[in-house]
Computed example of a mutant assay.
Amino acid sequence: MFWQGTYSLLLLALLALLGQALLPVAGQKAMYQRFLRQHVDPQGESGSNAAVYCNRMMQARKMTAQRCKAFNTFIHEPIYLINSICSTDSISCKNGRMNCHEGVVRVTDCKETGGSRPGNCRYRAQVSTRRVVIACEGDPKVPVHFDR
Rank of each mutant, 00 (worst) to 15 (best):
V107Y: 01
R106W: 06
R61N: 13
V107R: 07
R97D: 12
G5F: 03
L15F: 00
A125G: 15
Q43L: 11
A21P: 08
V105H: 14
S92I: 08
R56G: 14
I134M: 02
M31T: 06
G27Y: 02
M31L: 09
F74N: 03
A50E: 04
S84Y: 02
I82C: 12
C100E: 08
N99I: 04
K94R: 13
C93S: 02
G119C: 01
E137I: 02
G114E: 05
L22F: 03
C100G: 06
P143H: 09
T88V: 12
N99W: 08
G119F: 00
R97Y: 15
L9P: 03
Y7D: 08
L11M: 07
L10V: 05
K141M: 12
R130M: 10
Q20N: 15
R37D: 15
I85G: 10
Q20G: 14
V52E: 12
R67L: 13
V133S: 06
L36E: 14
N55A: 10
I91E: 14
H145R: 02
N83S: 15
G114N: 00
F74A: 01
I91S: 09
Y123R: 08
V52F: 09
V107W: 01
H76K: 09
G44M: 07
G103Y: 06
G115W: 04
L23I: 02
V127P: 06
E102L: 06
N83G: 08
D109Q: 14
V142T: 06
K111C: 11
R130F: 04
R34S: 14
V132R: 01
G19C: 11
H39E: 09
A51L: 07
C86W: 02
G27I: 06
L23T: 12
T129Y: 08
G27S: 04
F146R: 10
T64V: 08
I79W: 00
T113M: 01
L12F: 02
V25F: 01
H101Q: 06
P24M: 10
C136H: 01
D139Q: 12
Q66G: 01
M98E: 03
N72D: 10
R61L: 10
L36R: 12
G138Y: 05
M1V: 08
E102M: 12
F74M: 03
S90Q: 13
N55M: 03
S8H: 09
D89H: 11
W3N: 15
R130I: 10
